[in-house]
Design a protein around this nucleic acid. Sequence first.
DNA 1: TACAGGTAGTTCAACGTTCAATCAAGTTTG
DNA 2: CAAACTTGATTGAACGTTGAACTACCTGTA
Lengths: 161, 161
Amino acid sequence: MMDHMETTTETPWLTAAEQQIWRSFLGGTIVLNERLDRDLRTAHGLSMPEYEILVRLSEAPDRSIRMAELAAAVSHSRSRVTHTIARLEREGLVFRGQCSEDGRGVSAVMTDRGFALLEEAAHTHVRGVHSYLVENASPEEFAVLGQIMQRVITTLGGGKF
Amino acid sequence: MMDHMETTTETPWLTAAEQQIWRSFLGGTIVLNERLDRDLRTAHGLSMPEYEILVRLSEAPDRSIRMAELAAAVSHSRSRVTHTIARLEREGLVFRGQCSEDGRGVSAVMTDRGFALLEEAAHTHVRGVHSYLVENASPEEFAVLGQIMQRVITTLGGGKF
DNA sequence: TACAGGTAGTTCAACGTTCAATCAAGTTTG
DNA sequence: CAAACTTGATTGAACGTTGAACTACCTGTA
């Protein structure tokens, strides 16, 4: 699993062009995330991670997902999801329900207030994604972006594939 | 500056395909960053933000950059850079120097130990970037990625362009 | 049925980031 | 040359994330 053979393999240094692209990627994702987060926060008091969780819940049957699944869906640690859900619960956007079939299981369930807030926030968010990212690529280019990132996910997988 | 006209503009909802791409992007950047960060951390005790700062310093004349410039270069807040540099200073990888020409200015300067550590860490990092990202795209695709993200940076700019 | 091992979720402390407040040094205006 | 303003950087408190330790429950094996 771990690699202890750093000495044997040549390091594949990036060309100047590749380096430039990598930095654009790094910088671009930072400013994009920051901006989307700020937009949501100022308009609806919701952070991006919180928003993403609400989106997943809104799409799930009964607007309800088990904690671990939720964590996997948004690529966060279980602990982090526990905290995030706790926050959302305090604000009345979500509540915890015992999971039938598994005594250990806890399901996060979206409240009507949560759904209503999400409906508002979605406008802000989608408008941002569209104007900051989608409009900066032709459909073909955007498709390429998706393919690359999908491969990255597959490559890294995190055990879950 | 702020927009109070949400009611007048139509919200440009994403198509299913666009949504899928957007989620790949979101998930991909998360797992990629997480993995690169972990690799650096376990092999060299350095986080990605710390690593990036060392890289910028290593490229600068005298291996020295003013705090504000550093913040702009890595797209972090000034406060954050202050804290990060404080940490790096504690570990002897960097020190603070008074800036000639501006009594307020402080320059972060990389130590020899910092440079040596960076040289090691660079192998780990570049290998990761290459195998997790670069190898997942043809040169053409990778170029497209760079173009899109560069446009995102220009679009969002953060006031600095 | 009992015991070992795994899985679900939470808790707590340490850490890193953010945000507002502060201080010091430049710059502009009258 | 002073008052008002701006800019560079730091501080400290509040907040969110991480990682390890912990509890509770489930599953398989003997």
